[in-house]
Simulated assay, not measured.
Amino acid sequence: MFEKYFKDDEIKNEYKKKFISLWPGWLGKENDHLLDEVTEADWSKFNSLIKIIFKHYRLQVVDFKKRRLINVKNIEDLLCDYEDSGNKNSNEFSIYIIPELDCVLSEDWDYTFILWYKGENAIKSLRPFIEKSGLFDFN
């Protein structure tokens, strides 16, 4: 199943991107100071989103070393706290698969996740969870 989503350890080109963030769009240089003002409560919105998704859908986590997907049994084991998240390298970012929606949810820089999807059903299904978590999605 790993090959369904990845080619050369990159998400396949056939997936479109939707950004999930604390803000409704790109900050731009004039507002990049907002990145320094993110609180633990702000950051926890991403963990809330992942927990909500986990309640409604089966999640898998990506293991690049073994090139496989692992079913998530306890989401709490995978979530990190605010301090640890700020110390991650890009190769430590979380990447989740939501098989039922044929999409990938990947952690990225600057308090952003990327939803990689093929069909609009993934966005329609996840948007209420994104909004309930206090986050925004945009292209």
Rank of each mutant, 00 (worst) to 15 (best):
K17R: 15
Y96T: 15
Y57T: 15
S133N: 08
Y117F: 08
L78E: 05
D36M: 06
A41T: 00
N121E: 15
D42H: 04
D8L: 00
S48Y: 02
D32V: 03
D63S: 13
K55D: 08
S21A: 09
E30C: 01
K51P: 11
S44L: 06
G28I: 04
E120H: 09
S133R: 08
K55P: 01
F64R: 14
Y5P: 07
L78P: 04
Q60I: 13
E120V: 13
L69P: 05
D63T: 15
K66T: 12
K4P: 09
V72R: 02
I50S: 05
K17W: 12
Q60H: 12
L69F: 06
H56P: 11
L34D: 10
T112P: 00
C80T: 03
I130W: 13
S21N: 07
L34P: 09
G86R: 04
N71Q: 12
K12C: 11
F113V: 07
F113Q: 07
Y57D: 13
F54I: 09
F46T: 03
I123W: 12
P128S: 10
F138P: 08
E131W: 02
K16T: 07
F6G: 06
E30K: 03
D77I: 01
F2A: 03
K12D: 14
T39K: 05
S133E: 06
D42C: 03
Q60L: 12
I95L: 12
N13I: 13
Y111R: 08
I75W: 07
N31S: 11
N47R: 14
N87Q: 01
N89S: 08
K18I: 13
K51V: 11
E83L: 05
F64E: 10
K132Q: 07
K55L: 11
I11N: 06
K118Y: 12
S106N: 01
E76N: 11
L79E: 00
R68H: 08
D102I: 07
S94H: 09
L135T: 00
F138I: 12
L22I: 04
D9A: 03
W109K: 00
D84V: 13
K124E: 10
K55H: 10
T112L: 01
E14W: 00
K29M: 03
T112A: 02
K65S: 07
I114T: 10
K7F: 09
I50A: 03
S94Q: 11
L35Q: 07
N47Y: 13
I52K: 15
W43V: 02
K66H: 12
W43E: 04
F64K: 14
I130P: 13
M1Q: 15
N121Y: 08
E83R: 04
K4Q: 09
